[in-house]
Design a protein around this nucleic acid. Structure first.
Lengths: 114, 114
DNA sequence: AGATTTCATCGGCGATCCACGATAAATAAC
DNA sequence: GTTATTTATCGTGGATCGCCGATGAAATCT
C-alpha cells in the first residue's frame, strides 16, 4: 500500500511545513483547551474519526452515521470547524467536510507535551 | 539520572500494566470525549501541567498559581479528579494532588488513535 | 419557472458550566 | 477548648451547551 500520505486530495488541505508555535505557556494552554472543548462530546469524536477514515465526507453521510437530527449534526460540524480541526467546502448544494491535518497534528503535539 | 519512572512516590499512583481497552469504538469515543471535556478549560490545562512538572502539589500552591478564587480552583480540581486524570489525597488539613499517569497515558493513546 | 434536494441558521427549552462569596468541615496550633 | 488554617461545598447569576423542529438559502432537476 505504500501508505501514501494522502490517498485523495480531499477537500483542500493546505500544504504545511513544521509547526513553529510553542507547545506550552498560556498561549498553548488556551489552544489546547480550545481543541479539547471541541472534542468534548462523543458525537464530535465520532465525526472526527469518520473524517479521518474516509478522508472526506458529505454532510449527509455524516448525518446518516449519527443518531441525531440533521440540525444537531450541523451544529457539531460547526463547532469542529470553528476549532480548526476540520474544514468544510461547499460544492453545489452539498458541503464536503474533511480533516485539517495540520490542526490534528498540532493537537497531538500539544497533548504530547503535557 | 537513570530517568527513574517515578522520582517521588507522589500521592499514591497505582502500579500499572499495559492498557487492554480498545482505542476506538463507541466506548473509546465516550472515554476520549470525557477526557477532552475535562481539558476543555485553560485553567485545567494549566493545573495538569503544574502537576506533571511538580509531580505533586498542595491545593494552596495551585491556587497561588492561578488568577482565580480558591473555590473556583477547587471546582476545577474536582472536574479533573472526576475525569480520572488526577488524584487527590487528604493529608491533615491539606489535600495533595498528583497526576494519574495511567489515565494520562490512556488519553494520549486515545488521541493518538484518531 | 417551479419543485426538490441539501445544508445552515433560528428560536426555544432544559441542562450544564464558570465564576464568585459565604459557609461548613476537618485538622493543627496555642 | 479556642483559634487559625486549609479545603470542600453551597447557593447564585450569567453564559454556554445540546437537542430539536421549523425555516431559510442556494444549487439542481424537470
Amino acid at each position: 500500500m505504500k501508505s501514501s500520505p494522502a490517498a485523495e486530495p480531499a477537500c483542500g488541505a493546505a500544504l504545511d511545513g513544521p509547526d513553529l508555535r510553542a507547545v506550552e505557556g498560556p498561549e498553548a494552554d488556551a489552544e489546547l483547551a480550545e481543541f479539547a472543548k471541541a472534542l468534548g462530546h462523543p458525537a464530535r469524536v465520532r465525526i472526527l474519526r469518520l473524517l479521518v477514515r474516509k478522508n472526506a465526507c458529505i454532510c449527509g453521510q455524516i448525518v446518516d452515521e449519527l443518531p441525531l437530527a440533521q440540525s444537531t449534526v450541523s451544529q457539531h460540524l460547526k463547532v469542529l470547524k470553528e476549532s480548526g480541526l476540520i474544514r468544510g467546502e461547499v460544492s453545489g448544494p452539498r458541503t464536503c467536510y474533511c480533516i485539517e491535518p495540520r490542526a490534528l497534528r498540532r493537537l497531538k503535539a500539544l497533548i504530547g507535551s503535557v
